[in-house]
Design a protein around this nucleic acid. Structure first.
Length: 567
DNA sequence: AGTGCCTGCGCG
DNA sequence: AAAGCGCGCAGGCACT
């Protein structure tokens, strides 16, 4: 029965709750009678090449993964529903919007939500009829849209991301507890046996209290610390490190050190290690589509905030290596390609876009170029950044025109879209009311100012949305393509390596970590070069898929290494 | 005791 | 102390 159809196959449950699958055509019409299966694994094994149409990869994939069965492709109806529902490229979204059962992000409406319900979110439809119907709605929306090819690419990438998030959670980031413990002990001192703070933190705290001339000063309460600082003449308005650093007082250095140390302890200390990487694997919960722009969010463990300081604890298993790769200046490169700005693309040729801008004589130094580019994408208007943006506007009118237009649209309350068609959320009712009220002839100056500020805020958001969101699309395409390439690598002799990533992937290179523009692949040493080549080829494929025909470089900084610390 | 907000800081 | 986007999390604190 095993074959490789390559066609769509819906999976869900029948009236009796049994797992059933049915082949469907590209419009969602059934091509046969549903077949029933004992479990997901059996269903997947029966049609290994199918494009699975399911409500949610989080529900269906783990079971197959547990059994070592891989899924080639899927349509994640939950994530794709959200994209199509909001996309400005979809002209007729009425049917999709009416299918509110697929809006899982909607607020709980009843008071009967138990803790269990909240933890798992509202249940999605999973009846096979509902799966087919939603797939059909989505296919119709895409076909009738203005850019069906782009949307198809986006839905495929988003769906692949849904699987990758589950797979990376299952595989985990290889984490060396001994290295982590060593870093902590070196930075913070030995752990207290009596429940107090680690040795070095205590010592630094004593220095701070001495400088504050208060042996019992509370250092962890912002209001109390602020008062203590004032009492010794450090007249700061907050206790943030930027402001403190500007004062020349004996308390500053030890206080900043105390803050660094307690931050490390509370965010990624020994209790984090115990909770999040107890078995040599850090398993973050990734949340694909968790950010409005399409970036992933995360939940638990602070997956997307791993301090660079701790990267050396990301360490390959014995006999394995890490392929660590990131894209330098992903967002401005994406902007150059979206805007078809040849000048900026020329500056982006090679590995350092900022150096390219300097070489073109636009600004004098690399630091200026960096500040100007970030300011352009974030909407800076003041300070160094705001001062440098006009030079960029003269040199790269197309690129700057694109983000300036997006900002203007946002200020007017319009929706903007990424390259592949993910659209920004419309302004809230409150925002509209604020603007409308301020436009009335009798509006007060205060209301006008508030409305103006809020319009500018939204303009900066939409300005950044198109760039951040398209960068997320490039990264998703990279991941999705890489996933396929890695899946094609053969499993190496499991006896030759200490494979701890099995049974999920056996002894084969697999994605282990992803952070916006950076990936880590965990690979058997014998497969290191193949894995690295796959990473490079996938980046080239992503560039071609999104921006084929336009000459833009996305150079990778790639290294094959044992640990993910600084090279 | 549970909640929600604020401050501050880590990541891109 | 951010100017200038997007996040998650910890700890303190006020309120219920």
């Amino acid at each position: 029965m095993t074959n490789a159809s390559g066609g769509w196959r819906a999976i869900g449950r029948d009236d009796a709750g049994r797992i059933v699958t049915v082949a469907v055509d590209a419009t969602g019409r059934r091509l046969s009678e549903p077949s029933s299966f004992d479990d997901v694994t059996a269903a997947v094994a029966a049609d290994v090449g199918a494009r699975w149409v399911w409500n949610d990869a989080r529900s269906w994939l783990p079971v197959a993964l547990e059994a070592g069965v891989e899924v080639a492709r899927c349509r994640d109806l939950r994530l794709c529903h959200a994209i199509l529902r909001d996309s400005a490229h979809v002209d007729d979204a009425d049917d999709l919007r009416a299918a509110t059962a697929w809006d899982v992000a909607s607020e709980p409406t009843s008071t009967s939500e138990t803790l269990f319900d909240l933890a798992h979110g509202p249940a999605l439809p999973d009846h096979i009829d509902d799966i087919c119907a939603e797939f059909s709605r989505q296919q119709h929306a895409v076909d009738a849209s203005r850019h069906p090819e782009a949307l198809r690419l986006l839905l495929a990438a988003e769906s692949a991301g849904a699987m990758i998030a589950v797979e990376m959670h299952a595989a985990g980031v290889p984490w060396d507890a001994a290295v982590h413990d060593g870093l902590l002990t070196e930075a913070l001192g030995a752990r207290s046996k009596t429940g107090g703070l680690p040795h070095r933190i205590e010592a630094v705290a004593a220095q701070v209290r001495a400088a504050l001339d208060d042996p019992s000063a509370s250092l962890d309460s912002q209001p109390k610390l602020l008062r203590a600082l004032h009492s010794v003449g450090v007249m700061v308005s907050s206790t943030s490190k930027w402001e403190l650093a500007e004062h020349d007082h004996p308390v500053v250095a030890p206080l900043l050190e105390y803050k660094r140390m307690t931050r490390l302890l509370s965010a990624n200390g020994w209790s984090w290690l115990q909770e999040w990487a107890p078995d040599g694997r850090f398993r973050p919960v990734y949340v694909p589509g968790g950010v409005v722009t399409g970036r992933w969010a995360s939940s638990g463990g602070g997956a997307l905030q791993l301090p660079r300081q701790l990267r050396p604890a990301v360490r390959a298993d014995p006999g394995w290596v890490l392929v660590v790769a990131d894209v330098a200046q992903l967002e401005p490169r994406v902007l150059a390609a979206m805007a078809r700005d040849r000048g900026l693309a020329d500056a982006a040729r090679g590995t350092d876009l900022y150096a390219g801008i300097v070489a073109s004589g636009v600004v004098p130094t690399r630091q200026d170029a960096k500040i100007a580019v970030l300011g352009a994408m974030y909407g800076a208007t003041t300070g160094d950044s705001g001062r440098l943006v006009p030079a960029l506007r003269r040199a790269y009118p197309r690129a700057m025109g694109l983000v300036d237009d997006a900002a203007r649209a946002g200020e007017l309350g319009e929706v903007v879209s990424t390259w592949l068609g993910r659209s920004s959320p419309p302004p809230s009712a409150g925002w509209r009311r604020l603007q409308a009220d301020a436009a009335e002839p009798d509006a007060g100056e205060g209301d006008r100012a508030t409305a103006r500020r809020s319009a500018r805020d939204r303009g900066r958001f939409t300005r950044n949305f198109i760039v951040q969101g398209t960068a997320a699309e490039w990264a998703l395409a990279w991941l999705a393509d890489l996933r396929v390439r890695l899946a094609a690598l053969p499993a190496v002799d499991a006896g030759a390596v200490a494979a701890r990533s099995g049974p999920v992937f056996g002894a084969r290179a697999h994605l282990a970590f992803f952070l916006h523009d950076e990936i880590i692949v965990h690979a058997p040493a014998s497969q290191a070069d193949q894995a690295a080549e796959a990473v490079r080829a996938a980046a080239a494929a992503a560039t071609d898929l999104l921006f084929g025909g336009f000459p833009i470089d996305f150079p990778l900084d790639l290294r094959i290494t044992i640990d993910a610390g600084k090279a």
